[in-house]
């Protein structure tokens, strides 16, 4: 059953033009996408293609001048702003992009405590916090540490721990492996896969096509704010991507492990 879907989602920003005129600048047009339980869907696009806009729209985090049309549904129920706000942090969780989403002045333990309260978990103890970190291979000593002392890989796992405290049904991860080396990136993707295997739905936003293909069941390809294709991840791997739509195939072939767009160098 479809856990989460967006139908013809369009986002524009209203700006003033001249003194009295207004103009809507379209940034995301007619995006239709769904995710079922047990599935990882990757949303791939270059910077500026509209990936993060999609995530922010799905979570109701767009600024006031955004004009959003189309519908967003969770378990079949059409969501309005108030309903998204009620689900956010509980049944729908965001794993944000970078360490800058942690409070630099609070220890990891305090931030876990705040997240537990937001997620509505009563009687959250130090033992629960240790268990939450342990799920992501971090030991209890991390509770007393401040964000700037964490490596990029550790910080990402702390963000995962915070996002999943409320046992969400849908996890949206925005560039979860940006800046991580391959070992740490694999590890993060392994956790996301694990969420899906445990019956959650996962949306991974990524500009790393090979990682998206390796970790997801389906890959949605965004270009200039529009969805140009939704491909099965397996289609990329079969026959050099011969079955892909042209833009997806061109992207895939341009990877350095493939044709690198014909760049000839020893």
């Amino acid at each position: 059953m479809t856990l989460f879907s967006v139908d013809r989602l369009t986002v524009a920003f209203r700006r003033y033009q001249g003194l009295v005129g207004e103009v809507d600048i379209g940034c995301l047009s007619d995006l239709t996408l769904d995710v079922v339980r047990g599935e990882v869907v990757a949303v791939f696009g270059a910077s500026g293609a509209g990936k993060s806009l999609f995530a922010h729209a799905a979570l109701g985090l767009l600024p006031g001048n955004a004009v959003v049309t189309g519908s967003i549904r969770f378990e079949g129920e059409r969501l309005d702003a108030a309903r998204i706000a009620a689900l956010r942090g509980r049944r729908i969780a965001l794993v944000p992009q970078s360490i800058s989403h942690l409070d630099p002045l609070a220890t990891v333990g305090r931030q876990l405590g705040w997240a537990a309260r937001r997620a509505g978990r009563k009687g959250f103890t130090a033992g629960d916090a240790v268990a939450a970190l342990d799920r992501f291979g971090l030991d209890g000593a991390v509770l007393a540490r401040y964000p700037h002392t964490l490596s990029g890989g550790m910080a990402r796992r702390v963000l995962l721990a915070i996002a999943t405290l409320g046992e969400p049904d849908l996890v949206i991860a925005d560039e979860p492996t940006n800046g991580l080396d391959p070992d740490n990136a694999d590890r993060v993707f392994g956790y996301l896969r694990g969420f899906a295997d445990a019956g959650k739905g996962v949306i991974v936003i990524s500009h790393d096509l090979s990682a998206a293909v390796a970790s997801a069941d389906r890959v949605a390809v965004l270009r200039d704010g529009a969805l140009v294709a939704t491909e099965q991840a397996a289609t990329f791997r079969e026959d050099g991507g011969a079955g892909l739509t042209p833009y997806a195939r061109a992207l895939w072939r341009a990877l350095p492990q493939h044709a690198f767009s014909g760049v000839a160098h020893a």
């Binding site: 270059a46 500009h207 096509l209 061109a250 992207l251 341009a254 767009s261 760049v263």
Partner: peptide, 15 residues
């Protein structure tokens, strides 16, 4: 931070 097509083009030019 770039997509694979932009990456390949930039490296071809730079090399």
């Amino acid at each position: 931070m770039l997509d694979p097509l932009a990456q390949a083009e930039i490296w071809a030019a730079l090399l």
